[in-house]
Design a protein around this nucleic acid. Structure first.
Length: 509
RNA sequence: CGCGGGGUAGAGCAACCCGGCAGCUCGCGAGGCCCAUAACCUCGAGGUUCUCGGUUCAAAUCCGAGCCCCGCAACCA
């Protein structure tokens, strides 16, 4: 059995989650569920990043201790995962001992290998921003936010020898053209790489900032948040501890799912860090886009930030999951609006899948006494469409995080079934007493419905289960089988009594 | 000239690499059907393919110039 280790980025817990966080964890969840469906042994990690200056500042502003503030915010991300029906196996917080100890091990190992060194760093420090500025950040030599001239400050920091990994990284990019996905993001990183990498400061003096992982063997410094945060992908598996079975089994990661804004850290710095301690590299950095709202970038000032917990209070979770997967392309930005949601809901879920399910099951009730009929002939059209066209496309697109087109392929098949019903007119068969022909068609339609349910399983698990139940199938028993078995035709148990339920997705007006 | 993506019916996209009647989904209009959630099926309306110029029998597609959006570069998913 193939293992598959997938992670999300760990959101910076200085603010509440918004719909973009939900999108990322949803993408990862769909992939995790898909991989389980095709029979992989999946480990799925998410969590929160809780160190650093901004975190400290946010806590002070909220009038709370950092520990308390971090715990509160982190809990919201955990709640997001739970309420969105996310199947993560673990949730790591960078303030946990298991992480901090292991992050220090990672540092020590890198230091031992000669990849961390101490250097005087002097820079333009703005007291107001509590941050270093570059010449480019300044307007007339002054900080654009505070209008003050920054001080030149000299500080001794630890540096990571990123430049030493220039060639190995180039080799990596040459060898693995899909290391960063999609192509446009790969190109961006490859370009940056061509310009050459410089060593990066990876510590801060404790005087300025105490909220971080202490640098091993140096009381005066704490780690720079990114150096600390990135290691979560290995520390959560038990790297550096005696209990490291998960690490042995699942590392390297098969996919780090991240947002486009942190691509550099994951595609350049993180692989270099791993090389510096002689660990294997992740197979792929999968970079997704952003959600815009009514065509606008989400921002606090515009006031259009969408709370993912509110969204699922107002709409069914399954429908929201479907909308995002179907409407927001992984490799690009996509738009969310109530209007688009409603359109998509009515067209695809109510009129499409929901109505098709309903009409097939009603006919089984009416014409076959509520029992799935047996087939006497093979219906080449539906079988052929599924095996030659729909399944291959679906599988190919799912593998590439292209949920938009995987679902599009599935829904084309929904339309195909609708078309077939209109074309064959089973109601006319009933009137004409062509019972064999009628039963044959309905059998194949029930079976088609089962295949559709399988395809939507990663995105709408509860709806898929409902369809299985309505078809009289035992969900637990069916999911014990491999997808290759499940994808066989004539698998649906003939003679099952169907259990027609309420409409899956009542139309929105 | 820092690097890159894009401008195609009301909306969202495809076709561009490798020129050959401009296609899909939603929405809109008309008809059909009656198994179904006013659903489903069929047909139709709607485009100077950002602008200007060039190559060609033929340009959304190739070439040149320009305009406009957007991403990365910089601790926002």
């Amino acid at each position: 059995m193939n293992k598959f280790y997938i992670t999300t980025a760990i959101p910076y817990a200085n603010a509440d989650p918004h719909i973009g966080h939900a999108l990322e964890i949803l993408y990862a969840d769909i992939m995790a569920r898909y991989k389980r469906l095709i029979g992989n042994d999946v480990y799925f990690l998410t969590g929160t990043d809780e160190h650093g200056q901004k975190m400290f500042k946010a806590a002070v502003e909220a009038g709370k201790s950092v520990e308390e503030f971090a715990a509160e915010k982190s809990a919201k991300y955990l709640e997001l995962a739970d309420s969105w029906n996310i199947t993560n196996d673990d949730f790591i917080r960078t303030t946990e001992d298991r992480h901090m100890n292991a992050a220090q091990k990672f540092w020590e190992e890198s230091l031992k290998n000669g990849n961390i060194y101490k250097k005087d760093y002097s820079g333009l420090y703005c007291v107001g921003c509590e941050a270093y500025k570059t010449e480019k950040d300044l307007v007339d030599g002054k900080c654009s936010d505070h209008g003050t001239v920054p001080e030149i400050i000299k500080e001794e920091n630890y540096f990571f020898r990123l430049s030493a990994f220039q060639e190995p990284l180039e080799f990596l990019f040459e060898q693995n053209k899909t290391f960063v996905y999609p192509q446009s993001r790969y190109n961006e990183m490859h370009n940056i790489l061509k310009f050459g990498l410089e060593d990066v400061s990876i510590s801060r003096s404790k005087e300025k900032l105490s909220w971080g992982v202490p640098v091993p063997g140096d009381d005066s410094q704490v780690m720079y948040v990114w150096f600390d945060a990135l290691t979560n992908y290995v520390t959560a598996l038990g790297y550096g501890s005696t209990e490291n079975e998960l690490f042995q089994k699942f590392w390297p990661a098969d996919a780090h799912v991240i947002g486009k804004e942190i691509n550099r850290f994951h595609s350049l710095l993180w692989p270099a860090m791993l090389m510096s301690v002689n660990l294997e590299l992740p197979k792929q950095i999968a970079v997704h886009g952003w959600i815009t709202v009514n065509g606008q970038k989400m921002s606090k000032t515009i006031g259009n930030v969408i709370d993912p917990l509110k969204v699922i209070e107002n709409h069914p979770l399954e429908a929201v999951r479907y909308f995002l997967a179907r409407e927001i392309p992984f490799d690009n930005d996509g738009d969310f609006s109530e209007e688009k949601f409603k359109d998509r809901f009515n067209a695809d879920l109510a009129n499409g899948l929901g109505n098709l399910t309903n009409r097939i099951l009603t006919m089984v009730e009416k014409y076959c006494g509520g029992v799935v009929p047996k087939t006497s002939t093979e219906d080449g059209e539906l079988i052929g469409k599924l095996t030659d066209d729909v399944w291959p496309t679906y599988l190919e697109k799912m593998e590439e995080f292209d949920f938009v087109h995987a679902l599009e392929a599935t829904w084309k098949f929904v339309a195909f079934c609708d078309h077939m019903i209109s074309d064959r007119q089973p109601w006319a068969m009933a009137k004409a007493g062509k019972q064999n022909e009628l039963e044959d068609l309905l059998y194949h339609l029930c079976e088609s419905l089962r295949h559709i349910a399988l395809m939507i399983w990663p995105v709408m698990p509860e709806t898929a289960e409902k369809i299985f139940v309505q078809l009289g199938l035992d969900v637990g028993k069916e999911l014990g089988k491999s997808l290759n078995d499940l994808r066989q035709w004539v698998e649906l148990t003939v003679g099952n009594r169907i259990i027609k339920g309420d409409a899956l997705f009542p139309r929105l007006e």
